[in-house]
């Protein structure tokens, strides 16, 4: 019998995986179009990549497209945190339950399993993206401020997530 937790984690990871790649592709395309940056799609390697013909343009496009990817991840995690803080069935306010019932939105109420499965997936993606931005910053292919912003935002988001876990553990 395969682990239910692993199966659940895999199913939760599919959507963010697709979103990450789509955000990067759209980000790069929007930036090169908006700023009329010359580019080519190199299809000769295993993974096709965008080749920009100027180092400064590469840093610019790579920095802002990485930022777009990070913002997408942080929005996903923010949604999970919102559900954890306000719609978590173990500590949702009774008045909010009544409101949700009246609006027929009880589907927003979330179990601990769902919150923590989603949370683990989004937090993992967030820190992997921070690691990626860090490597790019080390290579001088991404602006330092993008890395600093991502690092600080990730620390804050992680602190909020851990605080919700602690509250949950404390109630048991």
């Amino acid at each position: 019998m395969p682990s239910k937790i692993l199966t659940r984690l895999i199913s939760e990871a599919l959507l963010p995986a697709v979103l990450l790649v789509v955000a990067k592709v759209i980000g790069v395309l929007v930036l090169v179009k908006s700023f009329s940056i010359a580019w080519q799609l190199n299809t000769s390697s295993l993974l096709p990549d965008f080749v920009l013909h100027d180092k400064a343009a590469t840093v610019f496009v790579n920095s802002y497209s990485n930022l777009i990817v990070f913002v997408v991840v942080i929005i996903g995690l923010a949604w999970v945190l919102t559900k954890a803080y306000h719609f978590h069935d173990t500590h949702i306010k009774p008045s909010l339950i009544l409101q949700l019932l009246s609006w027929n939105l009880t589907g927003l109420m979330t179990s601990s399993h769902e919150v923590y499965n989603k949370g683990v997936v989004w937090i993992s993606y967030m820190w992997l993206v921070v690691l990626l931005i860090g490597v790019h910053t080390f290579l001088q292919a991404t602006y330092l401020w993008v890395f600093v912003f991502a690092l600080v935002a990730s620390l804050v988001a992680t602190w909020y997530f851990v605080a919700d876990v602690e509250r949950e553990v404390g109630e048991r």
């Binding site: 995986a17 790649v21 990067k24 965008f50 590469t58 990817v69 990626l132 490597v135 790019h136």
Partner: peptide, 12 residues
């Protein structure tokens, strides 16, 4: 893998 893909989408 998606993060690696994101990291290699712009040629560095």
């Amino acid at each position: 893998l998606p993060v690696v893909g994101v990291g290699s989408l712009v040629s560095l």
